[in-house]
Amino acid sequence: MPLSKPDRSLVEPVIRRLNLLRPLSAEARASLEYAMLEGIQRAGAGEDLIADGDPVDSVRLVLSGWLCRYKTLEDGRRQIVNFIFPGESCDAHAFLLAVMDHSIATLTPVVYAEIKRARFESLLAGAPSLAEAFWCETLVNNAIQREWAINLGRRVAVERVAHLFCEIFERLRPVGMVEGNSCMMPVTQMDLADATGLSVVHLNRTLQELRASGLIILRERMLTIPDLDALKNAALFSPSYLQIYRGAEATL
């Protein structure tokens, strides 16, 4: 039975992003769509989908909402090591390991598709293009982690925050989450501080500096970037590590 239009629109962010990384066959798209629609789940903001040390027996694909990967020190200090956006997976190949080495929490209400390991492995075995797309996503995630390491280790505060905003904008663009030069920014200053290794006070001063320079407008949970090239220059940002243009010829 063909999917109805509302159903397909629900899973479209995942299909669009994977298809950009590696063009999917029609059979691969259909198989993944059915598997996702059978495993739709919802979670509220501030929930752990999986915690550090938990066993992994499924793959979670984000359909809407924002999440973060994080680690917590024994004294309670938290470091966000990445954000997870619509269209992305929560570690597609994590089930190959015994347990999770970090936690994944929702920052907003989230809708996601949960596919059990056996079903997921069967999907990949029957669709080489799908397997390649998920491996591409894993490689892109590794590249993102390298950029975040550079952010924390070498970029100054203004560059760190500007780089994060550029990355968020470019990661949201392929899945239709950008309107003109604006995108949603539903995270708190505490979240941004934990992602950039800054104190909340230092993060606030940095945001004020970016605003005063005319590089960003941050108002009512919306980020507007008046001149994306100028912000990229301030951040020393190049989007090549995101691989968002390599499959630009792919269409749904």
Rank of each mutant, 00 (worst) to 15 (best):
L3R: 14
S4G: 12
D7L: 09
L10R: 09
V11Q: 10
V11N: 08
I15W: 01
R17Q: 14
R17Y: 14
N19M: 00
R22L: 01
R22C: 04
P23A: 06
S25M: 08
S25I: 03
A26S: 05
R29E: 10
Y34M: 10
M36L: 14
G39L: 05
A43T: 11
G46P: 12
G46W: 07
I50T: 11
A51G: 07
D54L: 05
P55T: 07
P55M: 06
V56N: 07
S58P: 01
V59F: 09
L61Q: 03
S64M: 02
G65R: 03
C68A: 11
R69V: 01
R69L: 02
Y70A: 03
Y70T: 00
L73S: 15
E74S: 09
D75T: 02
R78M: 11
Q79M: 02
I80H: 08
I80M: 09
V81C: 03
N82V: 00
N82Y: 03
F83H: 04
F85Y: 14
G87P: 07
S89Y: 06
A92Y: 08
A92D: 10
A92N: 13
H93P: 00
A94G: 10
L97C: 11
L97A: 13
A98W: 05
A98Q: 07
A98M: 06
S103L: 10
S103F: 00
L107P: 04
L107C: 04
T108F: 03
V111W: 02
V111I: 14
R117M: 00
F120R: 03
F120S: 00
E121P: 01
A125V: 05
A125F: 02
G126A: 15
A127R: 11
A131S: 13
V140I: 15
A143I: 01
I144K: 03
I144G: 00
Q145P: 00
Q145K: 12
W148K: 15
W148Q: 13
I150Y: 11
N151H: 02
G153C: 10
G153L: 15
V158N: 14
V158L: 11
V158M: 03
H163L: 02
C166F: 08
E167Y: 09
F169S: 06
F169Q: 08
R173E: 12
R173T: 11
G176A: 12
V178E: 04
E179L: 06
E179N: 14
S182G: 06
S182Q: 03
M185S: 10
V187L: 08
T188L: 04
T188I: 03
M190A: 13
D191C: 07
D191N: 14
A193E: 08
D194M: 15
A195I: 03
A195P: 09
A195Q: 01
L198A: 07
S199W: 11
S199I: 06
H202S: 14
N204M: 04
R205W: 07
R205D: 12
T206K: 11
Q208N: 07
E209G: 05
A212R: 11
A212E: 12
S213G: 09
S213M: 14
G214T: 05
L215Y: 12
L215Q: 04
L215R: 09
I217D: 15
R219N: 12
E220W: 12
E220S: 14
T224G: 04
T224E: 10
I225Q: 02
L231Q: 02
K232T: 10
K232Q: 15
K232S: 10
A235L: 02
A235Q: 01
F237E: 05
P239M: 07
S240A: 12
L242A: 09
Q243D: 09
Y245F: 12
G247S: 04
A248C: 11
